[in-house]
């Protein structure tokens, strides 16, 4: 956490393109942004972002109608290695249909707002990989991890030795959220947003998720 703060400060000072200062300024509102990337694989160093989707959450309302959704064409020449070598010139040549053209729009959409995600670290690392090359910074936004929120609601008071399942499926099923087609960044962002609004309210009300000892779930997925 501390290291992250130092890094943030460092990036803020070293930010080459001052037009991106807004990333370091207090967010314009109390919204948070749920976001998700689809990638060609799970290796941050080698794989690329294919789609990136984000949706704002205002209070208990998910602003799906004002979503951010972009497709980046995966291109063999645009592997991480290639980007390192060719940096911006390649992107300029390609006409910006690639991730470098997409990212500024994404940053303007997100601004300094907290990011909400499921195993957010991976998505943030993917974005950071390009962002470092593009602007010399990493995403400075506060991060809200829904699997952590879920863990607190469900396993926060669990006796040692309790089997813990933080899979996306388990959360969806426990919270009674509809399972949308996965591997679609927007659907994943939407489901993550629905998890967030539900878990946030449960936390505010001090409601816990029942641990199904006998594998019997409460009828609606909720219990005390």
């Amino acid at each position: 956490m501390f290291a992250r703060r130092i890094k943030r400060l460092f990036h803020q000072i070293s930010l080459g393109d001052q037009s991106y200062r807004f990333m370091f300024e207090p967010p314009p509102d109390d919204d948070v942004v749920a976001f998700d990337c689809e990638t060609t694989g799970l290796d941050v160093a080698k794989d690329d972002i294919v789609t990136i989707a984000a949706v704002k959450i205002r209070g208990a309302r998910i602003l799906a109608s004002e979503r951010f959704e972009a497709v980046a064409r995966p291109d063999a020449r645009m592997s991480a290695e290639a980007i390192k070598v060719h940096r911006l010139r390649e992107a300029d040549v390609e006409g910006g249909k690639l991730i470098f053209k997409v990212l500024p729009d994404f940053l303007h959409f997100v601004r300094g707002r907290p990011l909400v995600g499921y195993y957010l670290e991976f998505d943030v690392a993917m974005v950071d990989k390009y962002l470092l090359q593009l602007k010399g910074i990493e995403l400075p936004n506060p991060m809200i991890e829904v699997s952590q929120m879920y863990y607190e609601r469900k396993y926060g008071d669990a006796p040692p030795g309790t089997a813990i399942d933080l899979s996306f499926k388990a959360i969806v099923s426990d919270l009674g959220i509809p399972m949308l087609d996965q591997h679609d960044a927007f659907n994943d962002a939407m489901m993550t947003a629905m998890m967030y609004v539900t878990l946030k309210d449960m936390k505010e009300r001090g409601v816990r998720i029942a641990r199904a000892r006998d594998s019997v779930r409460a009828p609606h997925g909720f219990g005390a």
Partner: peptide, 10 residues
């Protein structure tokens, strides 16, 4: 579809 938001109600 494009115009839909989602609301959560406690």
């Amino acid at each position: 579809r494009a115009a839909l938001d989602v609301g959560y109600f406690k």
